[in-house]
Amino acid sequence: MKLKLNIKGKEYTVEIQETDRDTVKIRVQGEEFVFKQKKEEEKVLVAKSSLPKRDFKEKRIKAPIAGIISEVFVKEKDVIKKGKKVILLSAMKMENEIISDFEGRVKKVSVKKDQKVKEGDILIVLE
């Protein structure tokens, strides 16, 4: 039996197969788990390990170096992909295109054009 489960907005493909009278094989996203009846602890194991952890933490894009914000390329609520150019930061004669190493939705843009920033200052918060 094959079914799709939607857990917290993510879809999982689950395949359940009875291999013999008291053994059930469950495949979650290609990963196989074998259960024997009346073995409670193994069921617990599935619940813990088979569901991929989701990172609900905010992701912060920080200034890699002190400088001045030359340009901001995103605004709040923008959904951005990994690799998207978000900020142009000028540091002396070095122009730094800050790209996002994460995907997500822009929760907050903490800087404005021409603003001075220090190394480590939060520029953009994603959720």
């Binding site: 150019k85 004669k93 070095m94 122009e95 730094n96 295109e97």
Partner: peptide, 8 residues
């Protein structure tokens, strides 16, 4: 001289 970097 102008140095440009792409930083994540």
């Amino acid at each position: 001289i102008l140095t440009e970097t792409v930083v994540g």
